[in-house]
């Protein structure tokens, strides 16, 4: 199953927790302190870490979405 990460920069509170947890996927802008995505579709090995980071995001700005023909939001 393939999936994609969405980040809502309007919602992001700039805690940097995601960058601290999965620096391969998330970054934090030095201009506005908000989340940046290095890649929306990281390698499967990072799935668990990304899921945890999304769950701990203090503003609910990170969501995971399945991609493919029958995909809906997760």
């Amino acid at each position: 199953m393939s999936w994609e990460i969405h980040v809502d920069r309007a919602r992001c509170a700039g805690s940097g927790l995601c960058l601290a947890q999965v620096p391969a996927v998330f970054d934090q802008s030095e201009d506005d302190g908000k989340v940046l995505l290095n890649t929306p579709a990281p390698e499967p090995a990072l799935a668990a870490a990304v899921r945890t980071a999304a769950g701990r995001c203090p503003s609910g700005a990170i969501t995971l979405h399945e991609t493919g023909p029958d995909a809906g939001g997760v």
Partner: peptide, 20 residues
């Protein structure tokens, strides 16, 4: 424990600016 998604710093757009 695995760190929990706690709300000690609040949640949402007002989440504590100084949490880090």
């Amino acid at each position: 424990r695995e760190p929990a998604a706690h709300v000690a710093f609040g949640h949402g757009v007002h989440h504590c600016l100084g949490a880090t």
